[in-house]
Design a protein around this nucleic acid. Structure first.
Lengths: 156, 156
DNA sequence: CCCTGTCACAGAATATTATTCAGAAATACC
DNA sequence: GGTATTTCTGAATAATATTCTGTGACAGGG
């Protein structure tokens, strides 16, 4: 069940990670291959779930999402973290990431809202409703220096 | 200098965020517009930097990146955080995100490596080399429940 | 050694798309 | 009202995606 990727696959991933909208023809030119062969590989990478999707990176500020925060979540006294909790957190649109973490806290979540007041509102109206959780440390981001979903593609 | 987006722009962003490789023709069909008009809008969204890029989401595990960690960085005693520090952090490929945060710590970084030993190695060989910093709390992610660069598109 | 299945690829043919452009609406702005 | 600017449509063309057929490489039996 282990996926094996050769050098060509990795090159494809590298190029498509940098620009998901690269044409199949350009991809083929870069790799010195026929477009049909490249397309076949891309389709397989999608089937094998190596490629999980293609997204457009939007400047958050331009759509009125100027606040970014990380919040540590723990279960309230006497309760343990259930996967239900994780699902409830994940269901909130403003919650972009939910990570189950090691240590005393249960989850670290990444939240994006318009401003601090809407974050407060979200915490009151959405987070507090989830059973048996207590948010702990909330970290407000002042400025994001780097943010990319770009993985390091290993060289073969 | 403020970017204004109408309903059509927001629809385009929503569709392209969900699938960056949607064809311009499909986009036009969804919006009941001519392909040329849609293309014009997309080009403008790129120019205005509302759209920052298109990326392919790769399953990290399939390219041997099984460990995810968040590390809080602070400046060592008697030093303040400089933007040089941020740049040094951002220059490390395994460091996916660098956020300047409020509070006593300076930065929160997100790091992805193959395993815990390569994280340790990275901390020793890369992080320690950066002048005047001290890493504080390191949070290891056991399991990622949700992770999407999907912003909440406001409805008009 | 040959047979056979599998795989990745090239090349060609066709369907579909991207891109460009001219001109018509729509809009905003004196 | 007049004028500029923006946004759109529709058509033409260039480029691309997609499909299909066939070939060569390779592996494992028998």
């Amino acid at each position: 069940m282990d996926v094996v990727l050769d050098n060509t696959d990795l090159q494809i991933l590298e190029l498509m990670q940098a620009n998901a909208r690269i044409s199949n023809a350009d991809l083929a030119r870069e790799l010195n291959m026929a477009p049909s062969a490249v397309l076949e590989r891309v389709k397989k990478l999608e089937q094998k779930k190596v490629i999980q999707g293609y997204t457009t990176q939007i400047n958050p500020a331009t759509i009125q999402q100027k606040l970014l925060a990380f919040i540590f979540i723990r279960s309230s006294e006497g309760f343990t973290c259930s996967s239900n909790t994780a699902q409830s957190l994940a269901a909130i649109p403003e919650v972009q990431e939910v990570h189950h973490i090691a240590g005393e806290d249960c989850y670290l979540i990444k939240v994006r809202t318009a401003d601090s007041s809407s974050l407060m509102q979200l915490m009151r109206t959405q987070l507090q409703k989830i059973p048996n959780i207590a948010s702990t440390k909330t970290t407000i981001v002042l400025e994001t220096v780097k943010e990319q979903q770009q993985l390091v593609i290993p060289k073969n």
